[in-house]
Design a protein around this nucleic acid. Structure first.
Length: 887
DNA sequence: AGCGAACTCT
DNA sequence: CATGAGAGTTCGCTT
């Protein structure tokens, strides 16, 4: 051996198929969050890991079969006939193989008309001629014919990671023939699995005997006359053609027109980024956590080309130009509390980095920030606004936000808050993750070497600058420019003001409630322990299920992945037979209020101002809705009286003022009416009818509204909801506690009576399948990669998303526009009323008594008329001394 | 530190 | 076969 080159060739399909059956018993357990089976991918992954680690190849390739037919079918149509169809659980995993291979840094190759065997055979020959060692990984014994002095064939055994190695010698020893003779063997004996016929009455034993005597099929027929007369000889003579054909079929073509050269196959290890995203996609969390990313991180850092930036201790006006990018660095994501630790700004010509102390003392900086005419581009306009506001600066003239732009373009989660995610998503590699500079978890801190931080920030500024141009172009191509510049960006400013304003919370009220709820909890807890006959942690579903289903022996109604379900709907079914569950339900309800709402809210009230400042996340919800965190003020209880009382703690900032709430009535169904153009729906809304009653009348075929019972209306309401969410008969039956058949009848009648809705659903799904995404009324997009998936769950989910997103998303768009307009009008009118909160279809204000009438008129005018649909939009308003009383 | 179950809202 | 949209927080429990 003159050199150490080693080529690893993998028979992709056969190895994956072996992996699939190797982990077949795990089939139902191994699914990702979307319901995609992952057992073949998992097994294949582990095999790759083992073989790559063991062999340390210098070159590698994974070969696949291309299409159904190969050149062999020309000679023999039935080749590989009689094979049963691939199970769909396996087939659905195939498209993801390429992601797995990408992660391993392995190239793959297929060749029309040829099988993977031929590709492998050809490359193995070439490589051996050039002095390589060759290892072939396959699940298929056929490949053993390729074994030679420098070619070894590894075949997967039943256990997933076990391999059996086949060398020229081991084959000779086990089979008694050379690897080359294996095809002669098949010529005579055939191969049932590939539907290769062979010669009648000749099996492996006979073939072996014949081959020992004659060596090959060709030689056998040359000397066939010397064979003494026998039935076998007759068969051999009669089926001479078949024997040659069979040999030909079984022979791997070692001279296939493979157009990839060995040089291209050099292997340089895993592609960390691709591997991480593959693990995430498949929910391979154990792999994810054991991944050693330090090498990768260092590598990334080295890859960054050097950039120029200036750390400045004195600032002057010459450092600011129109169109520059600006970034303010904070270590905690909650910008209401987190300190700015460094500031950077600049463009492609100059990047400046400075300490906040320097920046906030500078008049030149202040002039630039507050000059509307000087445009700035940023990452996260709202964060930037709030951060500067806390330093007595009001930023004006933000013209672009790459975080918002990226969200509009891909509607993918960029909530990690790290600019690097957005950059990488748009193929910009010049910036590193925050984690690399500041560390992660509890250890997040300023780097000791300050210059590292300065460089990091300078890179962010350059990234913002560069990406703002490319993303702007992409937005224009998608007709989404207005969505950014007239909706999301102005909204970011409005939200910033709302967050900074905050809502006043009455801590004393909460403290008082806390005491009362604690008494209830103690009392209910005692009763539960008495019924159970022992003490345990009621908050632990695991301990609770032991008590309920094992100790007390109540029937199990539903199971979760990890054990018995003790969810609300399950407990409600046990209510009649199990007195204890009544107490458990009460305990759960109250303890949720206590921990999340009372104790949780008390923790986030600013003791100085008595205010709560939530943060609205503008780039999380895939439909375009906002979400609210730290705390979430969009899920304050209302349905049950006990929880609703929490709202008494939300009060106006001044005595004598009121909390004023306005919500859109049935906005989603009105949008459905508008988009679907269903005449019955449109008429009902134009006539201001009660939509659920009208639905009930049509579905139950009743001609008089007075004959609609509350139950009929309730059912109709559930169906209307179901339509908006993308209904299934099963889901509706669960919801209404009726049979699946009855639910199906409801749905069928509904579609019959509202044909426009049916047409809308069919049409939106068709459109989604064709273009791969759906849009709201205002061009907000959501891509649906699974809409044509062969996996039922994935596809169904995408179909429901296709119908729900235009509805939910258009409602979100309308609210956003109304908020921008309201903010503007309140300022124009110089009102004291203040917009405080948004809860998906409602806006909450605080208002002086004297302005109530004016606000009422303004809110209605704005909310009902910001957008004109083919049905009217209707707003219901109310006010009171607290949020509780605004009902 | 991260996940799943349970709960809250529109 | 599995089975209604979009979110966030808290808890217990495992790593």
């Amino acid at each position: 051996m003159t050199d150490n080159k080693k080529l690893l060739l993998i028979d992709g399909h056969s190895v994956a198929f072996r992996a699939f059956y190797g982990l077949h018993s795990q089939l139902e357990r191994m699914k990702n969050r979307n319901g995609l089976h992952t057992n073949a991918l998992y097994g294949f992954h582990n095999m790759l890991e083992v073989i790559v680690d063991k062999e340390k190849p210098t070159h590698a390739l994974v070969a696949f079969d291309a299409g159904k037919t190969t050149f062999r079918h020309k000679y023999f149509e039935e080749y590989k006939g009689g094979r049963s169809k691939m199970p769909s659980e396996f087939a659905e995993q195939i498209p993801y193989m390429k992601d797995l291979l990408k992660g391993f840094g392995l190239k793959s190759y297929e060749l029309p008309d040829y099988e993977a065997d031929d590709i492998i055979g050809t490359l193995a020959r070439e490589a051996e001629e050039k002095g390589f060692e060759v290892v072939v990984l396959t699940g298929d014994r056929d490949l053993t014919q390729l074994a030679s002095d420098h070619v070894r064939i590894d075949i997967t055994k039943k256990g997933v990671k076990d391999l059996k190695e086949h060398t020229k010698d081991s084959i000779q020893e086990e089979m008694g023939i050379t690897p080359e003779q294996i095809v002669d063997m098949k010529g005579l004996a055939g191969d049932a699995s590939d539907n290769i016929p062979g010669v009648t009455k000749i099996g492996e034993k006979t073939a072996l005997k014949l081959l020992h005597e004659y060596g090959s099929v060709e030689n056998l027929y040359e000397h066939i006359d010397e064979m003494k007369k026998s039935k076998r000889k007759e068969y051999l003579i009669d089926e001479k053609e078949t024997a040659f054909l069979s040999k030909k079929l079984a022979t791997i073509d070692r001279d296939a027109p493979v157009e990839i050269s060995l040089d291209e196959l050099d292997y340089d290890g895993q592609d960390m980024e691709a591997l991480i995203s593959f693990y995430k996609e498949m929910d391979f969390n154990s792999h994810l956590s054991k991944l050693d990313t330090t090498d990768y991180m260092e590598e990334l850092a080295e890859e960054l080309t050097e950039i120029d930036s200036t750390f400045v201790e004195e600032i002057d006006a010459s450092m600011f130009k129109d169109g520059m990018a600006l970034y303010t660095e904070m270590l905690d994501e909650n910008y209401h509390h987190s300190e700015i630790i460094c500031v950077a700004w600049g463009n492609k010509d100059n990047v400046y980095v400075a300490d906040p102390k320097t920046v906030f003392q500078s008049d030149a900086f202040k002039n630039w920030i507050e000059d509307e005419a000087m445009q700035k581009v940023v990452y996260d306009a709202k964060q930037t606004y709030v951060a500067l506001n806390r330093n007595e600066l009001t930023i004006k003239g933000i013209s672009f936000d790459i975080m918002l732009a990226s969200y509009l373009l891909t509607a993918e989660d960029s909530s990690s808050g790290d600019l690097v995610d957005v950059a990488v998503k748009h193929d910009y590699q010049g910036v590193s993750p925050d984690e690399m500079v500041y560390g992660k978890g509890k250890k997040i801190s300023r780097p000791e070497d300050e210059s590292r931080m300065h460089d990091h920030l300078a890179r962010k500024v350059l990234a913002i600058n560069t990406l703002s141009e490319t993303l702007d172009k992409e937005l224009k191509e998608n007709e989404q420019e207005d969505l950014l510049k007239k909706m999301e960006l102005p909204l970011a400013m409005v939200l910033a003001e709302m967050e900074i304003q905050g809502i006043t919370a009455d801590a004393e009220r909460l403290e008082k409630m806390k005491g009362e709820f604690q008494e209830t909890l103690d009392r209910v807890e005692k009763q539960i322990f008495k019924e159970a006959g022992e003490e345990f942690n009621i908050n632990s579903p695991k301990q609770l299920s032991v008590i309920l289903f094992e100790k007390m022996g109540y029937p199990v109604i539903k199971k979760t992945k990890t054990g018995y379900s003790t969810a609300q709907d399950v407990l409600e079914k046990l209510r009649d037979q199990a007195p204890i569950v009544e107490y458990i339900l009460e305990y759960r309800q109250i303890s949720k209020i206590q921990s999340t709402y009372i104790e949780g809210l008390l923790k986030v009230i600013d003791p100085e101002t008595s205010k709560i400042h939530t943060r609205y996340l503008q780039t999380v919800a895939r439909t375009g809705r906002l979400s609210s965190v730290d705390p979430n003020l969009q899920n304050i209880p209302i349905r049950l009286e006990e929880g609703r009382k929490i709202r008494q703690a939300f009060v106006p900032r001044e005595k004598g003022w009121k909390i004023y709430a306005s919500d859109y009535s049935q906005i989603e169904l009105r949008i459905l009416a508008h988009i679907s153009e269903d005449e019955h729906f449109i008429k009902a809304f134009n006539d201001d009818e009660d939509i659920h009653t009208t639905t009930a009348m049509r579905v139950f075929d009743v001609d008089d509204a007075s004959k609609i019972t509350p139950n009929m209306r309730r059912d109709a309401k559930a169906v209307n909801f179901g339509i908006v969410y993308g209904i299934s008969d099963y889901g509706l039956s669960q919801n209404l506690n009726i049979t699946r058949k009855e639910a199906k009848e409801y749905i069928d009648t509904y579609f019959e009576r509202f044909p426009g809705v049916k047409t809308f659903i069919d049409e939106i799904i068709r459109q989604a399948k064709e273009q791969g995404y759906v849009e709201t009324l205002f061009h907000r997009r959501r891509y649906l990669p699974d809409i044509n998936s062969r996996n039922f769950n994935l596809r169904s989910f995408a179909e429901r998303t296709a119908m729900n997103t235009p509805i939910q998303g258009s409602a979100a768009d309308i609210l956003k526009m109304a908020m921008i307009e309201m903010n503007k009008r309140i300022k124009e009118e110089k009102m004291q009323a203040t917009m405080l909160l948004q809860v998906h279809d409602e806006l909450i204000f605080e208002v002086p008594e004297a302005e109530i009438e004016k606000l009422e008129k303004l809110v209605e005018e704005v909310m009902e008329n910001t957008v004109q649909l083919s049905v009217p939009l209707k707003v219901d308003s109310s006010y009171g001394d607290s949020w509780y009383d605004a009902k």
